[in-house]
């Protein structure tokens, strides 16, 4: 039995914010972002994404493990995935856990799902990714705000009788030394709200943020991506004995157009199918890859998606990649 991605759907909240036309839009490629409204949480968005799968015929009683990737849990405790088990009406003999990762999270979720399935612990893993970074960003941070959008995705990974691998060539990486480059400093147990005075700063470009808001050092994150992603590609291809020409599509974490373009160049992918589309979503963190896969599959037949290289990279700092065989993804036109 092999683990295969068999369904993907995504949910975008209704509130849309248009980015201001200008240089930032031109460089990032982001024209608009969906924002989770105040009365909704990442948990709510995850539920909506999952219900899209169930509405299309996925049997919720068949799910025996629920994974939720989020850095915006409903509560410090209990686990949001446990709440979702109840809200989605999943059976009680179903495992459920949250894991806290951002832009690399989808890859780690696939790896966890493969482990659960191919070790015989689960048959149908529902991997939910859901993020509301907009709620961490200061309203007057005009450098960071226009980059991130909120979204959730639901991916079903199933046990399939097949000789060929469905998810393989996994590579993972971590550099906690870069943690300060993408961080929300206050609100966890290290700096609790009640113990930590609010400090507000204005940067060299007039952007305002406090220590309760998301901070991102764009230059360092760019350098990080340009260092680790090309090596990850080499490692995946080496591990799987594949070549660039043998890959049907390269789908990276969709951060912004500029980063994706420089990565395409540095990874030697200028002449191969490569996904670069953040126009209507912005950076949706852990949902960016499944959103991209949905859109890609709506334009390309499954037969052309047998070997898709996926790489996620970002907050942590964390990265991961793998090859996915998407030829079993049915209902591929659903969004």
């Amino acid at each position: 039995m092999k683990a295969y991605i068999t369904r993907i759907a995504y949910y975008l909240p209704d509130v849309v914010e248009e980015n201001t036309p200008g240089r930032l839009m031109k460089k990032t490629g982001i024209e608009r972002r969906h924002l989770c409204p105040a009365h909704m949480t990442a948990g709510d968005m995850a539920k909506e994404a999952a219900e899209k799968l169930f509405d299309k015929g996925v049997d919720r009683d068949s799910v025996d493990f629920l994974l939720l990737c989020t850095q915006s849990p409903d509560y410090p405790l209990p686990t949001t995935a446990c709440l979702l088990q109840d809200r989605l009406g999943l059976r009680k003999n179903c495992g459920a856990l949250d894991f806290n990762l951002g832009c690399s999270g989808f890859i780690y979720g696939l790896g966890l799902a493969k482990g659960l399935i191919e070790s015989g612990q689960a048959k149908r893993v529902l991997l939910l990714t859901s993020e509301t970074y907009s709620k961490y960003i200061h309203p007057q941070d005009h450098a960071t705000g226009p980059l991130f959008g909120d979204a959730a995705a639901a991916t079903l990974i199933s046990s399939v009788e097949a000789e060929e691998e469905g998810l393989y060539g996994f590579v993972y990486g971590t550099d906690g030394g870069g943690a300060e480059n993408l961080i929300v400093p206050v609100g966890g147990m290290r700096n609790r709200y009640q113990d930590t005075p609010v400090e507000e700063r204005t940067d060299d470009y007039g952007n305002i943020r406090t220590n309760r808001d998301l901070f991102m050092n764009g230059s360092e994150i760019m350098n990080f991506a340009l260092e680790v992603v090309p090596q990850a590609i080499e490692d995946i291809l080496s591990k799987t004995s594949l070549t660039r020409a043998g890959i049907d599509y390269f789908v990276f974490h969709q951060a912004n157009r500029m980063m994706l373009s420089y990565l395409q160049e540095k990874c030697g992918l200028l002449n191969v199918p490569y996904w670069n589309d953040v126009r209507d979503y912005g950076n949706t963190v852990s949902s960016s890859i499944p959103v991209a896969l949905c859109d890609m599959l709506s334009r390309h037949p499954e037969s052309e998606c047998k070997r898709v290289v996926l790489v996620g990279f970002g907050v942590g700092l964390s990265w991961g990649g793998c090859v996915g065989n998407l030829s079993y993804v049915t209902g591929r036109l659903e969004r």
């Binding site: 240089r23 450098a143 940067d203 060299d204 764009g218 230059s219 350098n223 420089y262």
Partner: peptide
């Protein structure tokens, strides 16, 4: 501006 700084950093690296 900050966008150009990131662009320069990316160009230097890539």
């Amino acid at each position: 501006d900050s966008v150009s700084v990131v662009g320069y950093v990316a160009m230097a690296n890539a």
